[in-house]
Simulated assay, not measured.
Amino acid sequence: MISTLNPAQGPAVGGNQVIISGVGLLGATAVRFGTNSAIYAVVSNSSIRAIAPPGVGQTSVRVTSPTGTSNGLTYTYVPAPVLSGLVPGQGPTSGGNQVVLTGTGFT
């Protein structure tokens, strides 16, 4: 059984480390983010380090062992920010000027 994911979200391109906590994790044979397999290392009976594969939206993280598959916890993929504007488009080489960026996904 798994109880927490830390962090519970990450970039859509994947690649970030997620600590999966719970009980009975020592015999883990697979970690999946939805249908995608993750690279993982069992740290202890209560902890697994996994690398999130790429994905979109929300998915369920599950751990499989010889005794079955765990409950699922929600992991959210956060899309990369998209830059659509930059004002002013130029400035002094010494820097120091204020620039306003516009787009989506900055939070």
Rank of each mutant, 00 (worst) to 15 (best):
A52P: 01
N45D: 13
S65N: 14
R32S: 14
G68L: 05
V63N: 11
P79K: 03
G22C: 01
G57F: 03
L73T: 12
G15M: 03
G22A: 01
A30H: 02
T76L: 08
A52W: 01
G34L: 03
L25S: 02
G72K: 10
P79G: 03
T67R: 10
P11H: 10
L73E: 12
G55R: 09
Y40T: 10
N71S: 13
P92T: 12
T76H: 06
G55N: 03
V78E: 11
I20K: 11
V87S: 15
T29E: 06
G15F: 02
A80P: 00
A41P: 00
V31Q: 09
A30P: 02
A80W: 00
V43T: 11
A41E: 10
N36H: 01
F33L: 03
G14L: 05
S65M: 08
S37T: 14
A28S: 12
A50D: 05
G57L: 05
N45C: 00
V23E: 10
S21Y: 02
V43P: 03
P53S: 00
P92L: 14
G57S: 07
V56L: 10
L83K: 05
N16Y: 11
A52R: 02
V82Q: 13
S94N: 07
F33E: 09
Y75I: 05
T74A: 06
N16K: 12
G22L: 00
G85Y: 04
G91T: 09
L25K: 04
Q17Y: 02
N16A: 12
P54D: 08
Q17W: 01
Q58P: 01
N16P: 06
A80N: 10
P79I: 03
T74Y: 00
P53L: 00
T93Q: 14
G55M: 05
G96F: 06
A50I: 09
G27W: 03
S94M: 08
